[in-house]
Design a protein around this nucleic acid. Structure first.
Lengths: 228, 228
DNA sequence: AAGTGGTCTAGACCACCTT
DNA sequence: AGGTGGTCTAGACCACTTA
């Protein structure tokens, strides 16, 4: 048997060219985002090592990157755990998102055209139909799509990265609690306000509507999060 | 000779308890911030390995964390280099900073008291005296202190982290170009506007003044940065 | 086709917590 | 004093670039 791993690109459906630490980074991040590893959970190298069929070091590299990105906390001689999320942290994040929406929605207005208007209306109509049916998962998907469509117009990559990161940080919470039907129809109203403002090409109004939307999302979510 | 390094905590003035990857992370970051490694420069493991008296892996861990934090870019099988900074990136960062100042300066007004007013005035008076003397380095320090004093009132940790990160990302540029005496007296004017707004406890005015300050800083800096 | 330099393994060392 | 699990070393393997 050679020193090198027998199957460098196995254990995952990624095309060649990727390094192990990248695959592991991606995999662990996905597991954190999907709630497989909950906030605060320990991430033991030995376990992960076994799971991915790799020796400790590439695992540690992935964890270090995740630490840099804020998804993981590493304490000296105590190893890695998923970043705990308390109400304060969520409040901080939502406040930043709110501030960033001034950028996103003024870019959105600048880039808006008739095709965008139609797309947004179509998405939100589907959303409403799915609320009627009570299909929460599909609603979630349309919700994601609406925001992605708007945020795609944002020219500021740094903003896009931050928004994506925050979305990942809180998405495990959303899966657990989050969406009941009452909240969904409230969301629909908020979305229509945003869409109307975009169709009117009114940046101030769009920003205000988006910030209102964020605030509501926070108020809804924070009740499910432990104080500390 | 044992397998383990002969002097686990040598090569740096850090107290015990730190791990190697942490020391290296700190050291490399400092070197990037201070311009020892310029944007785009390659960071070869072998060199760093030699420099810090460590084997490749702890170096790589530090680099991975730096990648997660955005200071370093790692390409598969091509290793690490300092994140290149073009004008677009700086523009993006300054736009985000501007947005975050809505949070920082409304917190600042909320937390302001007579002691803060005095402190800010004292700092800016020292700044002005140093401009007279043409002591650019000391000016820079007072500038840093003024902003730190204001930002210390920000309750949002995420915002504080972002601001610190952006400051680190661009500080190597500032060292190279940046501060001539004309710009310094312009900065003084902008600072006094901010201080006046804070003393008046006028959040809107303080935010506007701060955003104006950021915009000017960007305009001044961007002329020194290559288009691409 | 040699060289440069990144990546990964196997296992040793050791810090910390538990008994 | 033993165990658990994090950290680090030495060196093998290999991808990519030079000639």
């Amino acid at each position: 048997m050679l020193t090198q791993t027998a199957s460098p690109a196995s254990a995952s459906g990624e095309g060649l060219g990727g390094t192990s630490y990248r695959r592991v980074h991606k995999a662990i991040l996905a597991d954190i985002v999907n709630g497989v590893y909950s906030p605060g959970a320990r991430l033991k190298v030995a376990e992960l090592s076994k799971r991915y069929g790799l020796s400790p070091m590439p695992i540690r590299e992935a964890l270090q990157q995740l630490q840099g990105e804020g998804f993981v906390i590493m304490s000296p001689n105590r190893g890695a755990s998923v970043r705990p999320i308390d109400r304060r942290f969520v409040a901080d994040i939502y406040e930043v998102r709110s501030a960033l929406y001034t950028i996103i929605y003024s870019d959105a207005i600048k880039g808006a055209d008739a095709a965008l208007d139609e797309a947004l209306v179509a998405i939100q109509k589907r959303f409403d139909a799915l609320v009627e049916r009570g299909d929460i998962a599909a609603c979630h998907e349309q919700n994601r799509l609406l925001h992605a469509t708007i945020e795609a117009l944002c020219r500021n990559r740094e903003v896009a990265n931050l928004i994506a990161r925050y979305s990942n940080l809180t998405s495990s919470l959303r899966d657990v609690f989050g969406y009941n039907l009452d909240r969904l129809s409230q969301i629909s109203e908020e979305h229509w306000m945003i869409i109307e403002a975009i169709r009117a090409r009114d940046a101030g109004k769009a920003i205000a509507a988006a910030q209102h939307h964020v605030r509501r999302a926070f108020e809804n979510m924070s009740q499910y999060i432990p104080e500390n």
